[in-house]
């Protein structure tokens, strides 16, 4: 009762990165609340999957293992999580803000009539006093996220409903092993009893999942472009600079929406969160959703012809001017000084 639960996703027999990150965050939230951390993992052929989870600090792992439970479909996973949550009454439930988590978590929130906050960029534990009634709430989950197009940062709470649900994007929380030899309890769910054939009305006919070719999350150097880059052609300059420096190319949401760069390279609240040692922002104005995904970069360079672009205010170096002129010069002077 009143524990922290993390829904763990599976990719090819491995617990997804985002789930490991959430387990790490869940462990620290559970420590603050002085409660247990529990994980739920639903899939097929996942014998001893708990071994991947326990090092991240889970006290209990609930496993539902059945052939039809992988790949993910909405209804059977909803049915299992719903029943488990009704039975175990968690205080907090965390899901990855992924294709799966964003499909599943709202369905759970609806059936349990509880609150859910999407795409949180921070989670904290804190108290609350209701203004009108002066009622005191202890140890609530503060669900913090940019809102209204990123022009404000909102702290959301669910004072009266449980569990308090939140989704978080991959890369936002830090993955940390709690204790490599930690071991907890495993609860095998009696799937046959928990599911009915009606839960399988949606059938998967075909799937093409590509392993990600792009890895901007772990890149040490990122050359990122915004709408100000102007075209897909101009983005080639960014690829050239990235190749010379040994980095990756990324884009803001505006650049992705503009078709200059593919979605898997998007940095920001609705993309990937990155922490490179060097982030070169080209033609990026720097709205809060974008900055939420890159402001922990060690060094930030902004190249922009708008001297008042908001990103300049968090940049270590601001270069005022045209990126089609500046980037070739950066390549030239880099090569000149490293030879």
């Amino acid at each position: 009762m009143n524990n922290v639960f993390v829904y763990c996703e599976i990719e090819e027999g491995q617990i997804a990165e985002v789930s490991l990150e959430l387990l790490s965050k869940g462990r620290s939230l559970a420590n603050l609340k002085k409660c247990k951390l529990e994980a739920v993992v639903i899939g097929s052929d996942i014998k001893s999957i708990e071994k991947q989870i326990f090092p991240y600090g889970a006290d209990i792992v609930h496993v539902a293992d059945e052939k039809r439970l992988y790949p993910y479909t909405t209804n059977p996973h909803t049915a299992i999580v719903k029943r488990l949550f009704e039975q175990e009454k968690p205080s907090i439930g965390l899901f990855g803000a992924t294709s799966i988590g964003r499909d599943l978590a709202p369905r759970i929130a609806s059936v349990l009539k509880c609150g859910l906050t999407a795409d949180c960029t921070a989670l904290e534990i804190g108290n609350h006093t209701e203004n009108k009634t002066k009622k005191e709430y202890k140890d609530l989950l503060y669900q913090i996220r940019p809102a209204f197009g990123g022009n404000i940062i909102a702290t959301i709470i669910n004072p009266d409903t449980r569990p308090q649900l939140a989704t978080v994007r991959e890369g936002v929380m830090k993955k940390e092993i709690n204790s490599a030899d930690h071991y907890g309890d495993v609860n095998q769910i009696d799937v046959a009893d928990w599911l009915s054939d009606d839960d399988f009305v949606v059938r998967i006919i075909e799937r093409h999942i590509e392993s990600s070719k792009v890895n901007i999350k772990n890149a040490g150097i990122i050359v990122a472009g915004g709408y100000g880059v102007g075209s897909r052609e101009n983005f080639n300059l960014l690829y050239e600079l990235a190749a010379v420096l040994g980095g990756e190319v990324a884009g803001s949401r505006a650049a992705v929406d503009g078709g200059f760069v593919e979605h898997e390279r998007q940095v920001g609240q609705t993309g990937v969160t990155v922490r490179p040692k060097l982030y070169i922002a080209c033609g990026i104005s720097g709205q809060i959703q974008h900055r939420a995904g890159m402001d922990q970069s060690a060094i930030i360079i902004s190249i922009n012809n708008d001297t008042e672009a908001p990103i300049n205010q968090i940049a270590d170096y601001t270069i005022n001017g045209d990126l089609t002129e500046i980037i070739p010069k950066m390549i030239k002077f880099y090569q000149k000084n490293t030879k």
């Binding site: 859910l116 404000i152 959301i156 205010q313 005022n320």
Partner: peptide
């Protein structure tokens, strides 16, 4: 069930920035 506890306007905290030209 969700309540807004706090809204903060986004305020840009400036880093010490070196301004360069092309």
């Amino acid at each position: 069930p969700t309540k807004v506890k706090k809204i903060e306007n986004v305020v840009f905290t400036s880093r010490e920035s070196k301004v360069l030209s092309a």
